[in-house]
Design a protein around this nucleic acid. Structure first.
Lengths: 338, 338
DNA sequence: GTGAAAGCGCTAACAC
DNA sequence: GTGTTAGCGCTTTCAC
């Protein structure tokens, strides 16, 4: 492995001059620079980023910590963040917390956090107290649909509003019994997650319409994925509880719903309307095309990076925490009626 | 930031003893260890991974470099790799090459590679010569459907065989004109990518059946994604070229095909059979459920990590490169006939 | 413009 | 069992 002093020796200059050339610092003579550059190319030298990090304390790297790699939603998110970061000359690495407490604790250990200039953290396994215990100098912006300590910057979707819009549309277009699949029967202050908030929106839409929803229409799910949704909607059909609309808490859930309804011989949207939440890239290409709530990802990513940069720029100065909520928008496609 | 010498001073021992405790090395007295552990907890000390990396040259981190975060396929892959790595006490970070030459060159710069114990590299933007220029001590295993320099370990799917199986099934179940969507009209040695190989399998199946395929059935695509596929299949229907089977080069493409056929009023599988390639988690929940080629991901991930560990264990010793091909399997669901 | 000295936080090697 | 010495490859500071 060739080092900076190899280059220095070969070029007949000091290590410092090589460092100045490598980092594009101004005060280097033109021909010295050229000679150094030549030697660098000849030797195939590249800086040791670890050494630079140790010394300079700057990494030019931002981490995104997601619960799991294999949810389409987080892939979309990561791609968006990467694109936005590229413009600023930094780069993104994605790590997985595994949606478990242990996994996320490991991912947010001071040691790991110190490897990055900033961290976008999407928590699922940790509770608010765990997060509150996080005392680190690394700028962190929280992402996600949880109630979390106020002292952090936080970016989340317009959960309640989005769920309200979706449910209201189905009620307005003739659905009499709108199921919320992946909802939460009970409100608990600790467990104030995505399910709770979206269920609140579903309730709000009913209240707006002067209706009292049948409690049996709130279907809880162990995991909000397609497989579970497929099973759950099948069970619901078998149970003979009447329904003619489904608000699926995520598009992944909606995918399972569409499959389950088709298997049960129910037509979408004639017999049952379906709306999801996330507006995944592929949702437009489902059959029928999925109506969904667009959570304003672009604005969320922009917001998250703005908050992060603000903290990075502030250094050790205190920063007043901010909470950004994405601008939701209902996207109507073939799975709903006009 | 508290350092090891802070802990040492506070505990009244030398830095080396703290290091020994932190790394669980044996020769430390029981009560000394306890005292050090106490101080560590009290001060909230955590090792500086950068310093450790610089000194020890080991990172306990493996990188997966993918072309893009927002392809479902790579999310599935990353999750599988993460799971397999966890068992060995290392962790995974995922980086994006952006599917461009510049992006991938940056991602595989010596500097970046040196940050990891090993790298799983999925190339798309680089050509074989670019990859061949890669001279690094970091163990690398290549992933993906390209012809690449022999001196690297390489894991790929059974492209030709998978495409052959898929096409043969449709020919055997009554399809007379099987389109390959996302195929390649011409064979070029440099561009020996996934499209070419899968087209070769499609041709092979025709040859096996004693048929000469209509060249108009090879549809090329700018990008193998759902949106492009949706457009392409619509254009094909409009063109009046008769077809009654579609082999989509990926499941993402097949999703667009199913949507496009539905929009054109064609029934799947009665009018047109469809088979994809990848067996994504969600493919089972499309309507109709997508028949596809399962590329044996599990075996591929196991193979990739075995090859990587082999190189890591070998250190500077030369290693004979290996090429692992995933065991393909046809998964028949609702989008094909019996 | 260029260079010498110091040290970021840690661990390998060896002495005791 | 524990401490001492040296140095990983780089950048910061300051002298010339």
């Amino acid at each position: 492995m060739t080092t900076m002093s190899d280059v220095a020796r070969e070029a007949g200059v000091s290590v410092m001059t090589v460092s100045n050339v490598v980092n594009g610092r101004p005060r280097v003579g033109a021909e010295t620079r050229l000679r150094v550059l030549d030697v660098i190319a000849g030797l195939g030298y590249e800086v040791n980023l670890n050494a630079r990090r140790l010394r300079a304390g700057r990494t030019d790297t931002v981490a995104l910590i997601v619960p799991c790699f294999d949810h389409v939603y987080f892939g979309d998110l990561a791609a968006r963040v990467a694109r936005a970061l590229e413009a600023t000359g930094r780069h993104l690495v994605v790590e997985q917390g595994g949606a478990t407490r242990e996994g996320e604790l490991a991912a947010v250990s001071l040691a790991r956090l110190k490897m990055y200039d900033g961290v976008l953290l999407s928590v699922v396994g940790l509770d608010s107290a765990d997060v509150d215990r996080l005392r680190t100098a690394t700028p962190i912006v929280l992402l996600g649909e949880r109630e979390l300590p106020e002292r952090f910057d936080h970016v989340s979707m317009g959960n309640v509003e989005g769920a309200r819009l979706a449910t209201a549309h189905m009620l307005a277009t003739g659905s009499r019994s709108v199921v919320i699949l992946g909802g939460a029967r009970e409100w608990s202050p600790q467990e104030s997650g995505m399910s709770q908030m979206r269920t609140a929106g579903w309730r709000a839409a009913h209240a707006d319409a002067g209706r009292e929803p049948d409690p049996r229409l709130v279907i809880e799910m162990a995991a909000p994925d397609s497989a579970e949704a497929h099973r759950a909607i099948g069970a619901l059909v078998d149970s003979r509880v009447p329904f003619d609309g489904v608000f699926a808490v995520t598009d992944a859930v909606a995918i399972g719903v569409l499959a389950g309804l088709a298997a049960a011989g129910l037509r979408v949207p004639e017999d049952v309307q379906v709306i999801g939440f996330d507006n995944l890239n592929l949702s437009e290409f489902l059959v029928p095309a999925l109506s969904t709530v667009d959570p304003g990802h672009l604005a969320m990513v922009d917001g998250a990076l703005r908050l992060l940069d603000r903290r990075i720029a502030a250094g050790d100065e205190p920063v007043v925490p901010e909470h950004v909520v994405g601008p939701v928008r209902l996207v109507l496609r073939g799975s709903t009626r006009r």
